[in-house]
Simulated scan of single mutants.
Amino acid sequence: MSEETYVYLCNKLRPAMERQDTAFRECIPLKKRVAIALWKLATGSEHRSIGHLFGVSNTTVCRCVQDFCAAAETLLVPELIRSPDREKFAEMADYTENRWGLPQCVGAIDGSHLPILAPQEYHCDYFNRKGWHSIILQGVVDGKGHFWNVFAGIPGSLHDARVLRLSSLWELASRGNYFPPCTRNIGGVNAGYYILGDNAYPLQNWLIKTFPDNGQLAAEHVIYNKKICRARVVVENAFGRLKGRWRCLMKRNDCDVKLVKSMVVTCCALHNLCESHGEAYDDEWDAPAVAEPGVAVAQGAEEEGTEIREGLMRYLNS
């Protein structure tokens, strides 16, 4: 993170994080408190080693992280991760169409398991299909890889489709109250804005996915799937860059589940901050790719979602 972005961050969080000296002791300066929290999020190091590095106690490190995440959720997240307005939706759709040729597409959705220590309560709920305890981060990104909707903290045993149905995105989009009423004729079908998902998600008129590969797909279906996958990789890259910068998300987090959730949302906001400020990213930071076991889930597709997908297929193959 450049000094310019760091100073911007400090000034943004100053109202909630700055402390005053007392008659008994001097307070830790704001910039140092922010630096301690950033170091924890960027490295995932233990409180003891961070305290030794900055010359403070373990308790101080813990308080700095808690205060930083609480301040970020209040002052940073609402500004950096927010539902797009009508103009922003149109801008995102134009960018995606210009880059991948997909009209009306405003982003992609995916989920990621983040390792945690087994909680004392309901620890079985957090035991995922991969064999370890985790919480799930569901994120929706635009064509530039910026998060515009996040939902974090759900126990790792739940399936991605179930996580989606528990989120406010599902509730609002299903009622037609999330995406603005802006339709366009695509392959003979009037389609509104939509996002891309993998086969774990249910097909909707606002969530499009590939055709299941049963080994007997027609040529036009194969072409359609390739183009959808090529565009959907933006969300996978965003998760990779998120974890590459904020490596506390890659190793087992020893904090309380409630704090871990706050740290995850804060890291998503910091990701958007770094990306929008053009901060350099080294490909060596990328998290190692781990093959996830396939998940076969029976899902029903709405008629309208099927029509839009087939209309989009005709458009892409025309």
Rank of each mutant, 00 (worst) to 15 (best):
M1Q: 11
S2E: 10
E3M: 13
E4G: 14
Y6R: 13
Y6F: 15
V7S: 14
C10G: 11
C10P: 04
A16P: 01
M17E: 05
F24E: 06
R25F: 02
R25Y: 05
E26F: 11
C27T: 15
C27I: 03
R33V: 00
A37E: 01
L38F: 03
L38Q: 06
W39F: 13
K40P: 00
T43E: 00
G44H: 02
H47D: 01
R48H: 11
I50H: 03
I50V: 15
H52T: 12
F54L: 03
F54V: 08
N58G: 14
N58Y: 03
R63M: 01
C64L: 00
C64M: 00
V65L: 06
D67C: 02
C69T: 12
P78H: 02
L80P: 08
I81Y: 05
R82P: 09
K88G: 01
M92L: 04
A93M: 01
Y95N: 06
E97N: 12
N98K: 15
N98H: 13
G101I: 02
G101K: 08
Q104W: 04
G107M: 01
D110N: 15
H113D: 08
P119R: 04
Y126T: 09
F127Q: 02
N128Y: 10
R129D: 06
I136F: 07
L137A: 08
G139A: 11
G145I: 00
F147L: 05
N149R: 02
F151P: 00
F151I: 07
G156K: 00
L158A: 12
R162H: 10
L164V: 11
L166V: 12
L166I: 10
S168V: 12
W170D: 14
L172S: 14
S174L: 03
G176S: 05
T183C: 09
R184F: 10
N185T: 15
I186V: 15
G188A: 08
V189H: 07
V189T: 13
I195V: 15
G197C: 04
A200W: 01
A200R: 00
Y201P: 02
P202F: 03
P202D: 06
P202I: 05
Q204W: 05
Q204Y: 07
I208R: 04
T210S: 09
T210M: 02
F211G: 11
D213Q: 11
N214W: 07
Q216V: 12
L217I: 13
A218M: 10
A218C: 08
H221P: 02
I223G: 05
Y224S: 06
K227R: 15
I228P: 00
C229Y: 06
V233G: 03
V234R: 10
N237P: 04
N237T: 13
A238Q: 04
G240R: 01
R241Y: 07
R247I: 05
C248L: 04
M250E: 12
K251V: 15
N253F: 01
D254E: 13
C255A: 14
K258M: 07
L259S: 09
L259H: 11
V264Y: 03
C267L: 04
C268I: 05
L270P: 02
L273D: 10
C274L: 13
H277W: 13
Y281K: 07
Y281N: 07
P288G: 10
E292K: 11
G294Q: 11
E302Q: 13
E303S: 15
G305V: 06
R309V: 07
N317Y: 08
S318H: 14
